[in-house]
Design a protein around this nucleic acid. Structure first.
Lengths: 113, 113
DNA sequence: ATATTATACATAGATTCTAAGGGTATGTCA
DNA sequence: TGACATACCCTTAGAATCTATGTATAATAT
């Protein structure tokens, strides 16, 4: 029910999701799962620490938002620096995914039929 | 000069390279770098431990091969179990690369122009 | 002599993950 | 009423994997 994310790819996806607008931990995780048709899973144990690192790095800012119903949420917004970093990291991630396909394709193509 | 491999992707690529025929640590690393046009880097500190794990898991077998010139090499060969596992892991890796593109594409497509 | 390339390996430390759990609130179902 | 599920926040322990760096040998190139 969903492969784990690879090393370091999680923050890039968090920034990508936040580039669509402010959101909070739980919703970010659900959004990634939704966008991947449940192929990716984002665990709380890696998400929340990652959010803290992104905030410490000044790429996002979090603010507590009291809710009329249910538990309060900590809503994160991308900063300007965060938007730039988002562009950089998502491009890196795309390039990585592309090169994986290239390498595996080249190896597969070399197989005897 | 080459992005590092993500978590867990290294053994899959090692198995993929070995599916073309026996090889040894140094050559495997160079092959991955070549096939990726130097976009990927495979470091010794992660390659050699990974080779040991793959051997312990019975997916590859290593044999020392004395060389007429230069240092001896430990040449690894894929086992039958290793070949099956190679198919499984490379497919997982392909799927992962694909879903990354899908997710980033969907987020990007939702951006205002 | 020194540096570079080819080859093997080890270890320390950092990062990031997985697994597991605690805590609150609301809604649902028997 | 009580149990359970869902929606949210968070933490910690331990495993896995990585990066960085160093040891070692041999050949080759400067």
């Amino acid at each position: 029910m969903g492969r784990e994310l690879s090393n370091g790819d999680l923050p890039a996806l968090v920034l990508a999701v936040l580039s669509k607008g402010p959101s909070y931990g739980y919703a970010i995780a659900r959004e990634v799962e939704l966008l991947s048709d449940q192929a990716l899973r984002m665990r709380e144990g890696s998400l929340y620490p990652a959010l803290r690192v992104l905030e410490q790095d000044g790429l996002i800012v979090g603010e507590w938002a009291p809710q009329p119903k249910g538990a309060d949420r900590k809503v994160y917004t991308l900063t300007e620096a965060g938007r730039k970093e988002m562009v950089r990291r998502t491009q890196e991630l795309r390039d990585y995914a592309t090169v994986i396909h290239t390498v595996l394709g080249r190896i597969g193509d070399a197989q005897p039929a």
